[in-house]
């Protein structure tokens, strides 16, 4: 429906706005196209084998993405395992338990964490976090849970686990704040009904709030996963950077983003560079996939309260 008396400024304004919105699509296409252009040589050379091959040998010009895909998935999984319970619990605390006057300061502190640049996390990770992990947490894990293959082998400090922990810290703010939004959207009626049945605080949260918000919280986690996959600088500085598939979380690993960051400047052959571009393309594809899932999970919840005129 068009409002009466349309004039050219209206039309041009609308087109300008549309143009700006469409820029997003153009940018996605541009990034995808540039990455594809860059990786054509590697795609032609290795084909689909690239994704499953574990060889990464710049000397013989043989490249395979599997160790990086594996490292990206494992470090992101560790990050989620740590960050989701912490983030959701913090969100629950903030919406259900915390006294009103401390809610805002806590939210502010959590948001400050989101503001720390990746390179600063890396600096801190190397000089502060890693030594502590190596001398305390990892030693403790090895003595108590050492019977699991996950916690065996020598402790170096830099490791898949350290990478996962740093990513966990970096995705905590988004998981916490999205979870908080979702918990806040749970109707109070839910809580009141449960209280009326004589439920305790925790039972209200478990039965009325969490089960109601399950889907949304899952969506929040997937959104966190989307962020975790692309983390670059900080991970690069703590994960150990070794293209190897190892069962132990104490072993060094490597991720798609960090191999690009580490080796993009040193790639001397065209095929080497092209393979790095293809890793970028794989990363973009995985990011898109994860975001699709997150959107699908969150979309059903988002009550679209748009303020449109039409």
């Amino acid at each position: 429906m068009l409002p009466a008396g349309i004039r050219w400024p209206d039309i041009s304004f609308r087109w300008l706005a549309l143009l700006a919105a469409v820029t997003i699509g153009v940018l996605i296409a541009l990034v995808g196209w540039e990455l594809y252009q860059g990786s054509r040589m590697a795609i032609g050379q290795f084909g689909p084998r690239f994704l499953v091959s574990s060889t990464w040998n710049p000397v013989t010009d043989q490249y395979g993405a599997w160790p990086f895909i594996y490292g990206t998935l494992v470090s992101s999984a560790i990050a989620l395992i740590i960050a989701v319970p912490l983030g959701v619990a913090t969100a629950l605390y903030l919406t259900e338990l915390a006294p009103m006057r401390i809610r805002q300061p806590v939210i502010m502190v959590v948001e400050m964490l989101a503001a720390v640049p990746s390179v600063i996390f890396g600096l801190w990770g190397i000089f502060v976090l890693i030594p502590w992990l190596r001398d305390h947490l990892f030693v403790w894990l090895k003595t108590t849970l050492g019977f699991l293959p996950l916690f065996q082998g020598p402790i170096y400090g830099v490791s898949m686990l350290a990478g996962g922990i740093v990513v966990a810290i970096m995705i905590l703010p988004i998981i916490t704040s999205v979870s908080r939004e979702i918990l806040r959207s749970v109707p109070n009626l839910q809580r009141e009904a449960a209280y009326a049945l004589g439920a305790t605080h925790w039972e209200v949260m478990r039965i009325a709030v969490l089960s109601y918000a399950k889907r949304g919280l899952f969506g929040a986690s997937v959104l966190g996963l989307g962020r975790a996959l692309g983390e670059t600088m900080a991970v690069t500085m703590v994960i150990g950077n070794r293209p190897e598939v190892s069962a132990s979380l104490f072993a060094p690993g490597y991720t798609l983003a960090s191999v690009i960051a580490n080796e993009f400047t040193e790639a001397t052959t065209d095929l080497y560079l092209s393979s790095l571009f293809e890793l970028g393309l794989v990363l973009l594809a995985v990011t898109i996939l994860v975001n699709v899932i997150a959107q699908l999970m969150l979309r059903s919840l988002a009550g679209s309260g748009t303020g449109k005129i039409n």
Binding site: T55, W56, N57, P58, V59, T60, I126, I130, P131, R134, Y156, G157, V158, T236, M237, G240, N241, R242, P243, P252, N262, E263, E266, T268
Partner: peptide, 27 residues
């Protein structure tokens, strides 16, 4: 293995930059 600015190392672990390698050695 061969020679290059980065190779497929048959053993060991990697440190980023001179500082990373030094840190690994010291620790």
């Amino acid at each position: 293995v061969g020679k290059n600015t980065s190779v497929n190392w048959p053993a060991g672990l990697g440190g980023k930059g001179n500082a990373g390698v030094t840190g690994q050695i010291k620790q």
